[in-house]
Simulated scan of single mutants.
Amino acid sequence: MLMTPTGRLARLHYLPGTFRQLSAGDHVICAVSGVPIPLDALRYWSAELQEAYATPEIATRRLLGQAG
Rank of each mutant, 00 (worst) to 15 (best):
V28Y: 02
D26F: 04
T60L: 12
S33F: 02
A52W: 01
G25T: 05
T4D: 06
A24L: 12
T60V: 11
R61N: 12
T6H: 02
P56Q: 12
A10D: 06
V28R: 02
Q50F: 07
I58V: 13
I37Q: 03
A52K: 02
E51Y: 07
Y14I: 09
A52H: 01
L63H: 14
S33L: 11
E57W: 07
P5N: 15
R62V: 06
E51N: 10
R43Q: 15
R43T: 15
L22P: 06
R8F: 01
P5V: 15
E57M: 10
A31P: 00
E57V: 12
A41S: 11
Y53W: 04
G34I: 04
L15F: 09
V35A: 00
A41T: 11
Q50E: 09
C30W: 02
V28L: 05
M3D: 00
R61V: 10
S46A: 09
V32N: 00
Y53F: 13
R43N: 14
G34C: 02
A67W: 00
R20E: 15
A47Q: 09
A41H: 10
L42C: 09
P16L: 12
H27E: 01
A52Y: 01
P56I: 15
S33K: 08
W45K: 07
R43V: 15
V28H: 02
V32P: 00
T6S: 08
A59P: 03
A24M: 10
L64E: 13
E48T: 14
L42Q: 07
L63N: 14
R43I: 14
V35N: 00
L63G: 13
Q66W: 08
A31C: 04
F19P: 00
S46I: 10
E57P: 00
Y44W: 13
L15K: 15
G25M: 03
G68F: 10
A10Q: 08
S33H: 03
Y14V: 10
G65H: 09
G17Y: 03
A24Q: 11
L42D: 05
Y53V: 09
E57K: 09
G34L: 01
A59T: 10
Q21T: 14
I37N: 01
A47T: 05
I29D: 04
G7A: 12
L42A: 10
L12S: 08
G68N: 13
E51R: 13
V35E: 00
E51A: 14
P56W: 11
L9C: 07
P38T: 06
G34W: 00
E48N: 13
Y14F: 15
A59W: 10
L9V: 11
I58K: 01
V35I: 01
R61P: 00
R20P: 10
L49C: 13
P38G: 01
S46L: 08
P5A: 15
I58D: 01
Y53K: 03
P16A: 14
L39F: 06
L2E: 12
A54E: 04
G68A: 15
A67Q: 02
Y53I: 09
L22M: 14
